[in-house]
Design a protein around this nucleic acid. Structure first.
Length: 552
RNA sequence: GUGCCCGUAGCUCAAUGGAUAGAGCAUCAGCCUUCUAAGCUGAGGGUUACUGGUUCGAGUCCAGUCGGGCGCACCA
């Protein structure tokens, strides 16, 4: 809708002889008495034109040329705002468009022919997914969905590492528990994985193998087995939330030589060396971030000869460029906040276009049960598990709660609230609106023989003009802009808020406007309005990955 | 100590630099012989942590102060 205004205003500026490099800003006033849309362009250019803003606004208005029957009223208000009021007919014609486009309504084409990669979850297979990971998972999934709505070809990627020290400790942890199963007494170090799941894996191995490995120092079998079991459990948990990845990228491939005997990691070092950003001292290889104003250099290759995580991370991102993605999105938790600036710096030095990279960082989650807050903890056995949460509140509530706050805010997950089957629970509020419409449509078919697909009758919508009807129509027309905003900010929360307000406006319409009892043409028109509302709810739910129940 | 995030109604949170800072919950008062009351209407509730600055205009941007969270390894 905003794109509807911009060219018209731009042309008016030209006609009025105003030249500016300021971008034309279209906003929705918080208060409807200031119009459906407004622009502050007169205020912005007043200074450089040395003219009074209101007078300038008046001059612009005189040159505005909108298509007929679209704008009902234009006025200058306040300090120099130009306010636009949409024509009721235009709003209702937009509702027809919703019905016409159906599942496609709200989609855009800026991403047509472009490739995007969204990397999210990326947990190493050292344990079951925690609640904190869940937030990033849902966030990433929704962001990927948003990109798809704009025509991007999206790859959902999971980056993981099954080598490294943590996996070593995992293997040892399982081995020790296994020895316990074999009846040996062992000392279990505090820095090993304490979780109950380790014991379960050990028991499984004991069940299959008996005491066959009791005397062996062989660690690989324990590691492999643990990895398999844990990865399967992670994928199962994600599946429960409707999260699936197209691609699993194993960090290990970056250590594997190509046909010329070169590893991706080594190429990064060579390239950085050529740019003069590599130093060698203390037996290690360093990325000279001190040249970039940082306090310390960063280790790329440890004195043991193993790369630190930073090096493969850079190499990994280079593969994203080499795989020719136009848009590169990384989703991760606040605990990795210090990680990506170095990667970006390195990529910049190597002349990659880091403008394509977007990073979405989500803050942590605390869960509250009965008003008590349980803090998420890391490697201890008491980490709260995503699976338990899903068991407790269901997949829909889990998904929606994770994204109903801004990603920069700490999330307070009220488990009691998420379980409630009442209006306090935002999940039910949204889904109820959908179910209510479904029920209404069922009733309409029965009582007055309403058929949803009788397209020739949809123009009946144009006779609707009460405030509640227009408010609902306007909300529907606003949907495509909401998707764009949500995507631009990488913030699915905007969609949640929008859908909540749409549900609210619908409930008001439902309350104020009798439908089945209205005279036949009005009844049909209102049913089409309800039908369009259901369509937008569905489209929005699909982006958020929340189900749309037919009845509740 | 330092980097990043946050501080808005009693609680949980909104507000692309715009007009009188908004929702939900909770509290109080109304609306079901009528399409799902899992709903709707209304009321009360605020020095946007604090102090300065930038400008036509600041909750929003900048500087500083105070509070909370997360990082700050030759772990990932």
């Amino acid at each position: 809708m905003r794109e509807f205004f911009r060219p018209v205003i731009y042309n008016a500026l030209c006609s009025a002889g105003i030249t500016t490099d300021k971008s034309i800003n279209i906003e929705q006033p918080a208060d409807k008495k200031f119009g459906d849309f407004s622009t502050n362009i007169a205020l912005l250019v007043a200074k450089e034109c040395r003219r009074n803003p209101r007078e300038l606004a008046q001059a612009i208005i005189e040159h505005l040329l909108f298509p007929p029957d679209t704008i009902a009223r234009i006025e200058v208000a306040g300090a120099g705002f130009i306010n636009f009021y949409l024509a009721p007919l235009f709003i209702m014609q937009s509702v027809e468009k919703v019905l016409l486009e159906g599942d496609e309504y709200g989609k855009g084409s800026v991403g047509q022919g472009k490739k995007a990669i969204v990397e999210y979850v990326s947990a190493n297979p050292t344990g079951p997914l925690t609640i904190g990971r869940g937030r990033g998972g849902v966030l990433g999934d929704c962001i990927a969905n948003l990109f798809e709505t704009q025509g991007y070809e999206v790859t959902r990627e999971y980056y993981f590492n099954d080598a490294g020290r943590q996996m070593q400790i995992l293997g040892e942890s399982v081995q020790l528990r296994y020895l316990e199963c074999c009846g040996k007494s062992v000392e279990f170090p505090a820095n090993h994985y304490q979780g109950e799941y380790i014991r379960e894996i050990a028991e499984e191995i004991y069940h299959d193998q008996g005491t066959g490995f009791a005397e062996s120092t062989e660690l690989l079998m324990f590691k492999k087995r643990a990895e398999e079991i844990i990865f399967a459990s992670i994928r199962k948990t994600l599946e429960r939330l409707g999260i699936r990845h197209d691609s699993f990228f194993n960090e290990h491939t970056l250590y594997t030589p190509d046909e010329k005997g070169m590893t991706a990691n080594q190429s990064v070092i060579d390239a950085l060396r050529e740019k003069g950003f590599i130093a060698e001292y203390d037996g290690a290889i360093w990325f000279m971030t001190t040249k970039l104003g940082q306090e310390k250099d960063k280790v790329l290759v440890k004195s043991s000869g193993e790369p630190s995580y930073r090096l493969p991370d850079i190499a990994y991102h280079i593969t994203k460029f080499e795989r020719s993605f136009d848009m590169i999105v990384n989703v991760f938790g606040a605990d990795h906040i210090d990680e990506y600036p170095d990667v970006l710096e390195a990529l910049k030095i190597l002349d990659y276009d880091t403008g394509r990279i977007k990073v979405a960082i989500n803050q942590f989650v605390t869960t509250t049960v009965d008003g008590q807050t349980l803090k998420m903890s890391t490697r201890k056995g008491n980490a709260d598990l995503l699976d338990d949460l899903i068991d407790d509140v269901g997949a829909d509530a889990t998904r929606l709660f994770f994204i109903m706050r801004g990603k920069d805010s700490h999330l307070n997950f009220d488990v009691e609230l998420a379980k409630k089957q009442s209006k306090d629970n935002p999940v039910f509020y949204l889904q109820y609106a959908h179910a209510r419409i479904c029920s209404l449509l069922r009733m309409a078919r029965q009582e007055i023989g309403f058929e949803a697909d009788s397209i020739q009758e949809q123009s009946l919508l144009q006779q609707l003009n009460s405030p509640a009807e227009l408010q609902l129509g306007f909300a529907l027309l606003d949907y495509p802009d909401m998707i764009k905003t949500s995507l631009r900010l990488l913030e699915p929360q905007k969609m949640v808020e929008y859908l909540h307000s749409l549900a609210e406006v619908f409930h008001r319409f439902y309350q104020e406007c009798p439908i089945l009892k209205a005279e036949p043409d009005i009844a049909r028109a209102r049913l089409f309005l309800a039908l369009a509302t259901r369509q937008v709810l569905r489209n929005g739910f699909r982006i958020l990955g929340v189900s749309a129940p037919e009845s509740m």
